[in-house]
């Protein structure tokens, strides 16, 4: 399956989902004018990844999926979609894949740290919180 790569813009984050390495990264700033238009294709890609790769390749069941979240800011509408993206990864976890979620935050940025803690709480999943 082709990787998903979206260049960052002034209003949207960089997205880099690589099935080959099983590393999935969203980084930067998220305040899209059309939040549905930005995030829906990402969710669709994850659904296809789930159907085409994870569900059909039993070897992948043991693969480790690494999710790196390196957000500097996201608005409330984006938070809903970031949660939905992570919920898709939780589906992979429930199928037996190991899922590691790394939540990066600038040292001293309590807002991003707290947002990550809240999302982790909503998912009922343990994140690695990593200052930089």
């Amino acid at each position: 399956m082709e990787p998903l790569y979206i260049e960052p813009t002034e209003f949207t984050p960089k997205v880099s989902f690589d099935p080959e390495s099983s590393i999935f990264e969203i980084s930067g700033f998220s305040r899209p004018e059309n939040v549905i238009g930005f995030y829906r294709p990402i969710l669709k890609w994850l659904e296809e990844y789930n159907e085409k790769v994870l569900s059909q390749n039993i070897k992948f069941e043991k693969s480790l999926l690494t999710i790196n979240m390196k957000m500097t800011y996201f608005n409330s509408a984006s938070s809903k979609f970031l949660l939905d993206v992570l919920l898709e990864f939780m589906k992979f976890h429930s199928k037996g894949n190991k899922v590691e979620i790394n939540w990066y935050f600038e040292d001293g940025d309590d807002e991003i740290l707290e947002s990550g803690e809240e999302i982790a709480d909503m998912l009922g999943y343990t994140f690695n919180f990593i200052p930089y």
């Binding site: 899209p32 004018e33 059309n34 939040v35 549905i36 409330s76 509408a77 938070s79 809903k80 979609f81």
Partner: peptide
Amino acid sequence: VSPKGGAGL
């Protein structure tokens, strides 16, 4: 999420 992009948040 509404068509305007609001999530009530």
